[in-house]
Design a protein around this nucleic acid. Structure first.
Lengths: 220, 220
DNA sequence: GTAACTTCTTGATACAAATCAAACGATGAC
DNA sequence: GTCATCGTTTGATTTGTATCAAGAAGTTAC
């Protein structure tokens, strides 16, 4: 995926991948406290990452799909500080971080790529903080749907149709709201003719309306 | 600050610093949309970083103090996506990112250090997401005070006394609540004898009580 | 010193989302 | 097929925080 890589670079890139690993739905790729050794590039499947408090409260910190990298949280302490759970059967490329560091000293493009991946995650989390800190339930759900469809579209899927891989509760955890509130927001959008929902199937009928909810000022 | 650096390493490290820059209270070190060229290591002073929506809502994404690095958000797009504002007169080391990348290819310890800084920021933001998504007003403020004092203590300041560099509104923005709610939470802690507050001066009288509020399960 | 302004505190009220509760729909075991 | 389970929807009520409002405390200008 990185831009500016020629086939030679790609060959080198392959060197960082030690093995592949399959993870069944519901299983953990890594969990809080595990020793950090590798980053993981998702080949197929869908993950959530989440942190939890000692008293059992859980916060989903992200949903990741094919082409995205997980495990960055482990670098700072050499131990993971979150759990990565497969939301459907998945396969990842295991990239031992020692390899990543060694090779990125040799290949500036790889180095740059690694830095961008980490920076992108920081920027993403900034915008989630904005969601959680400033937006209301329907704005959050609109932003969530727009973000998901945009990422799926970039992978060749429909821009208007999707099957959610996560439950209402998981969406709620990510967006800082309860599953009932998520459900109500879905129903409201549906009543207003903005989307069509049937369980985890969602069809977006009016993208502009969603954008308007997410950001009242901008659009039209 | 990085561990494992000998004096020789430190000399090399100095090479990444191009210049120093002074920023007056209220001024911006960089702002949303600015071209990204450098990271900044804070030498003295106190910053906030914030993102904002087109309709003017602002979210403080962090408060940074001496020894911390800001500007990581700019790497991914070559443009900054947030504002960095000095909350008091400050001085930073300007570290052109090209230098950082060049030198970290030569010095594995620097490379590792850069990776850890970025990972630490990701982990920090994960825990802010937990705050914003799952915690109530008083828990958020308790966590905020504990985090601030811990970081100040690591810099040689008191563990129980501090002068806030930010307004109630800025604290509220960071914690996803309104300034009145911040003020009420301060007053409540004060009434309960947990802290002593006088405007921006705060003295923590009972750290354990704060920890208990932040995390009811763990402590004692 | 006073005046103007900003920041903070406190009170009264409103409201969005949480909670509690029940029913409905899908899925899987047998 | 029936039964059990899990996820989802919907309704009624509660609650934590926002909002509105006013005053107090601190700061700056003059």
């Amino acid at each position: 995926m990185p831009v500016g890589f020629n086939t030679d670079d790609m060959k080198k890139l392959d060197e960082v991948v030690a093995t592949r690993r399959r993870i069944k739905q519901g299983e953990m790729l890594f969990s809080n406290g595990d020793v950090f050794t590798s980053l993981y590039a998702i080949r197929t499947g869908f993950f959530k990452t989440c942190v939890s408090t000692e008293d059992g409260r859980e916060q989903v910190t992200g949903f990741q799909m094919a082409g995205e990298i997980i495990g960055l949280d482990g670098i700072v302490t050499d131990h993971h500080s979150c759990n990565a759970v497969a939301l459907e059967d998945a396969e990842v490329c295991v990239m031992p971080f020692a390899n990543v560091e060694d090779l990125s000293r040799e290949f500036p493009l790889l180095q740059r790529h690694v830095h961008k991946i980490m920076s992108r995650e920081i920027v993403r989390e900034n915008s989630v903080m904005m969601l959680l800190g400033n937006m209301r339930a329907e704005e959050r759900l609109a932003a969530f749907l727009l973000n998901l469809t945009q990422r799926l579209h970039a992978r060749g899927f429909s821009q208007t149709e999707l099957t959610l891989r996560m439950s209402r509760e998981e969406i709620g955890s990510y967006l800082g709201m309860k599953l009932e509130t998520v459900s109500r927001a879905f129903s409201k959008f549906s009543d207003e003719g903005i989307i069509e929902v049937k369980q985890r199937y969602v069809r977006i009928l009016n993208t502009d309306a969603l954008k308007k909810i997410f950001n009242p000022e901008t659009c039209s």
